[in-house]
Nucleic acid binder design. Structure first.
Lengths: 137, 137
DNA sequence: ACTAGTAATCGTAATCGTTACTGTTTACAC
DNA sequence: GTGTAAACAGTAACGATTACGATTACTAGT
């Protein structure tokens, strides 16, 4: 997901172009990994110390709903990253040290349907956790 | 995991047999599904209204560490259930309405190693969410 | 450009789930 | 029974998230 694509989506849905949204999107665009709300806040605080939690969480949730960001939960904390691969279904290896991800093309759902007659599947989560080559020492 | 097995593990490790632990374990034994700390608390409050959060979370964490309970995180809340299948590796379908689970024998890790040279894998999570046959309407 | 209307924001407080602290009580070995 | 460490109750603190009233700023329409 590029910045241009993100803004196109926002404009289509009549969301306004504000300085805060620009800053948030640039931050995600420059950091290709999972980030917490607090990391976003700390980054934004450098040129806007009074930034509100309301603003951050509201925008992160909006971006996530629009498919601009993808979201996961690690250790009880929401993490966000720029949507990758233009919405093609995929999973992630996630580095527990730096948040960097590696795409996993294989989706396990193809192999499990046999077990689930009568069940209504709404979603699934497949994530691998560990250290990326940079963080492994 | 039966009550007897749980108590055997606890006695091996010198944990004391207390009324609170009995109540907690019975609750999990009688409810074959994922439960929250709050559900445990509400159940215990019926005969012990002054039950402390400390007691509940400490015991749930202990049981989880000992492999008596298994634990997952759903919507930012820790959920616990009695360990099933005697520790054999497996995954779950989890009903988002009632917390009931269905075992998934297939583990996707067998199919992904090719992507992860140089990565140090520490763990993984594969869960399917939806409605069980009882909760589907 | 000006203004109105509404979306977005700030500042702060409230909420939720969880963890931590301090005496007091209890289980269990001797 | 007695001693001792574990477990507990009661409560406060904590971190992440959500909510709210008042203010500001985008954008469309004139």
């Amino acid at each position: 997901m590029t910045l241009d694509e993100a803004w196109r989506i926002l404009q289509e849905r009549q969301f306004k172009r504000t300085k805060n949204r620009e800053t948030i999107l640039e931050f995600f665009s420059d950091n290709d990994r999972y980030l917490t709300a607090m990391e976003v806040r700390n980054f934004m605080a450098s040129d806007n110390p009074g930034i509100s939690f309301d603003t951050i969480y509201r925008n992160l949730s909006t971006f996530s709903e629009l498919g601009i960001l993808e979201e996961t939960e690690l250790n009880g904390e929401r993490h966000f990253r720029m949507q990758c691969d233009h919405g093609v279904h995929h999973h992630h290896f996630i580095c527990t040290a730096c948040g960097k991800t590696q795409n996993i093309a294989h989706c396990p759902m193809e192999s499990v349907s046999v077990n689930l007659q009568g069940f209504e599947v709404e979603g699934h989560k497949f994530e691998i956790y560990g250290k990326c080559p940079v963080c492994v020492e």
